[in-house]
């Protein structure tokens, strides 16, 4: 059990909007911890479209998804945010009162953080592995079907069917091939998105008879009590192959699911969190929602809207964190106080 962390605000989601909220809160002397299921900051910008240009960020006629994230990281650096990556906020408990809210946040990694306000900036929800549309696949999950490799040893001596054509599929094919009894890689076409050197290594293993490569899609699984025995693979020409295997690793990318947020006792509207447009506070005092995850009349799912929402939410959060301090509005251009915080004065 790790020690409980105490901070001012927990931000759920380290996408562009969560990162800019660190900046706005930081200017008001509010410390933040961010929790994000992905292994790096940036949310959809880094995960879905790192190389794609964005044209509607004020002041940037063109910036790539990753470029924007890099700049936001630079911008929030003076405030020393603490990132908890690869973790998802599982539980959110109220430990204060409506006037003096307090929250206990628990991640699926067992980390507990106590804070005075929670800022949900979770975008489309948390990224989770896409599941293949194979009838009955659920029954095998956790026993024979896995969406990630936690311990390689668990695959020693097994017959593994790896499905996909990206880096995850190819990397695990090459890593597991030496220890598994047999590895079969299945992809729907004979072209791979993965790094060319991985693809070449895989092709060499296939040529030497050390592993198998099949083209097609899984249509059915055979087995009992969660123990996989074989997978039926359908090829483009309509024929099928039965692949004997006791492990399957499908790598179909990630999808966004609302996840545990649904269980936090907030009012929800079609999987979005309704907020007011003055403070961007939810139905629970002290819990705020900004960016794509919230909804209000006229809501636009734009990054710039999320930035604005973070700035306004920060004003109200200040009252929870410093109930006895009056907040004076200041500009970064003229306030030496703010410039000191930014490390430029």
């Amino acid at each position: 059990m790790t020690e409980t962390i105490n901070t001012d605000v927990v931000i759920v989601g380290a996408g562009p909007v969560g990162l800019f909220a660190v900046f706005e809160l930081g200017l008001l002397d509010i410390r933040c911890h961010l929790v994000d299921i992905l292994s790096k900051p940036g949310g959809q910008c880094s995960e879905l479209y790192p190389e794609k240009p964005i044209y509607d960020i004020p002041g940037f006629p063109l910036v790539t998804g990753q470029g924007l994230v890099d700049n936001l990281m630079e911008q929030c650096k003076p405030f020393h945010p603490v990132f908890h990556h690869g973790e998802m906020v599982e539980r959110l408990e109220t430990i204060g009162t409506a006037e003096h809210p307090g929250f206990r946040v628990t991640t699926d990694g067992g980390q507990t953080i106590e804070c005075k306000a929670v800022l949900i900036a979770a975008g489309g929800g948390s990224f989770q592995p896409k599941k293949p549309p194979i009838p009955g696949v659920d029954a095998y999950e956790g026993h024979s079907v896995f969406y990630a490799v936690r311990k390689m040893e668990a695959f020693a001596g097994t017959r593994v069917l790896i499905v996909g054509g990206g880096d995850s599929a190819l990397d695990w094919t090459l890593n597991l091939q030496p220890i598994a009894e047999r590895v079969t890689l299945l992809h729907r076409r004979d072209a791979f998105r993965a790094a060319p050197h991985s693809v070449n290594s895989m092709r060499e293993l296939v040529a030497s008879g050390s592993m198998d490569l099949l083209l097609g899609q899984v249509t059915a699984l055979e087995g009992a009590d969660g123990h996989l025995e074989a997978a039926v693979v359908k090829h483009d020409d309509g024929t099928s192959t039965r692949v004997v295997c006791n492990r399957m690793l499908p790598f179909f990318g990630l999808t966004m699911k609302l996840g545990p947020i649904a269980g936090w006792g907030l009012n929800l509207h079609e999987n979005l969190v309704p907020v007011d447009t003055e403070k961007f506070e939810t139905s629970t005092p002290g819990i705020f929602a900004i960016g794509d995850i919230n909804t209000y009349p006229g809501k636009l799912k734009l990054i710039l809207s999320g930035f604005h929402e973070g700035a306004l939410a920060a004003q109200k959060i200040h009252r929870y964190v410093y109930p006895d301090k009056r907040l004076t509005f200041q500009y970064t251009t003229s306030s030496t106080n703010l410039q000191k915080k930014l490390g430029v004065a």
Binding site: P133, A191, Q217, D236, F252
Partner: peptide, 13 residues
């Protein structure tokens, strides 16, 4: 687009 289709379900020609 062909690369992205790898992530779709029941892809057909």
């Amino acid at each position: 687009e062909e690369d992205m289709l790898d992530f779709a379900w029941e892809v057909q020609p």
